[in-house]
């Protein structure tokens, strides 16, 4: 039986998830995820055509804050956990000029 999720799909999902996986990991995840997804498809036994999706858990609406600025962390605290910074900015290896969104 062919797997529900093959290595190619795992690679694609890993790319979307920004996970660098070894070939062995890809194989392992492919079979584990296939098993899980096959189980999940149990949901298809249910006819849900007329069922509303429950997009939010509570029925509450309209929760707001007022537009009054509060104190920010400031640069020092903002950078305190940064793996690399120059005292002003977070530093990462040069970003290629691709469109972000």
């Amino acid at each position: 039986m062919s797997k529900k999720i093959d290595a190619q799909q795992v690679k694609k999902v890993a790319m979307l998830s920004r996970l660098d996986l070894s070939d062995a990991e890809i194989e392992r995840f492919a079979s584990q995820l296939s098993e899980i997804v096959t189980y999940v498809e149990k949901m298809n036994e249910l006819d849900t055509e007329k069922v509303e999706p429950m997009a939010h858990c509570l029925g509450i609406t309209n929760r707001f804050g007022e537009d009054r600025p509060a104190e920010s962390l400031g640069t020092e605290k903002a950078l305190a956990n940064a793996p690399d910074h120059d005292g002003q900015f977070f530093i990462v290896p040069r970003i290629l000029e691709e469109n972000s969104a």
Partner: peptide, 24 residues
């Protein structure tokens, strides 16, 4: 990865949306 898969283009309705309906 499972969550990414369930939300990804082409699978959203079959997994994520379906799950929200079952949740209801």
């Amino acid at each position: 990865m499972l969550g990414t898969y369930a939300l990804s283009s082409g699978y959203y309705d079959a997994y994520y949306l379906k799950a929200l309906k079952v949740r209801n």
